[in-house]
Amino acid sequence: MFIDDFKAGLRRIAPIIVSAAPFGVLFGAVAVQHGMSTGEAVLMSGVIYAGASQLVGINLFDQHLPAWIVILSILAVNFRHILYSAAIARHIDLLSPWQKAVNFFLLTDPHYAEIERHAQGGEPVTFGWVMGLGLGLYLPWLAMTYAGCVLGAFIGDPKSIGLDVLLPVYFLGLVMGFRKRENWLPVVIVSSLASMAAVKFVGSPWHVSIGAVAGILAASLMPVKPGTRSELGEG
């Protein structure tokens, strides 16, 4: 039972491993290029496990800022997880408290997106399934970080082989995957404009939180259709 669900979760995450792997390698390579040891880079991947914030952390550490500013910036990039964990609360009733705690440790952008997709398709979100999904990405992430550290010395400029383009295009694909949802277009337009304005006038990494909050506010201010049943409510 557990093992069948685990395998099903693994199969679901498998295509994402291929697209996430370059970012693990990218992180490892950038970490080494910024003077991190291999041990530090793999530890960071293992306990933070959130690529974009790890890259932000390295860049800020390089600027010799106080630790609390770097930690706060990591928090800002990862603030979106608060919204993910609120959104999946309604889908994980089958998990015990400690199973939820483990599942939340493995919560990432694709992990969240796949749980939403799974639950929307009416499939049960079991512990075995989320472990296949989560560990199926977590363990390769560590391996790819290590590979990136080893390769780091050989990659001259990540831009010359286009590594920098993969991340935004990958996230764009995830955004497009939600286009059937209500308010999708206004949300995407508002979040785009707000995050682009924020990156210009406030600076990274705050554009993530500012853009997200703007899009979410826009959605909650749209006219509410009368008689729509609550999807999030418990009863």
């Binding site: 974009a52 979106r80 919204l83 993910y84 609120a86 959104a87 952008d109 969240y112 997106a113 939403e116 991340l167 935004p168 996230f171 764009l172 995830l174 955004v175 939600f178 949802r181 209500e182 308010n183 999708w184 949300v187 995407v188 508002v190 979040s191 785009s192 404009l193 707000a194 995050s195 682009m196 924020a198 990156v199 990274s204 554009h207 993530v208 500012i210 853009g211 997200a212 909050v213 703007a214 899009g215 979410i216 506010l217 826009a218 959605a219 909650s220 749209m222 509410v224 609550s230 999807e231 999030l232 409510g233």
Partner: peptide, 19 residues
């Protein structure tokens, strides 16, 4: 609040793309 929560994935992921 529900409309806002449903907008989370598109809103957040967009901010990782547009800038």
């Amino acid at each position: 609040v529900e409309a806002g929560l449903n907008a989370v994935p598109a809103a957040v992921l967009t901010t990782l793309v547009a800038p």
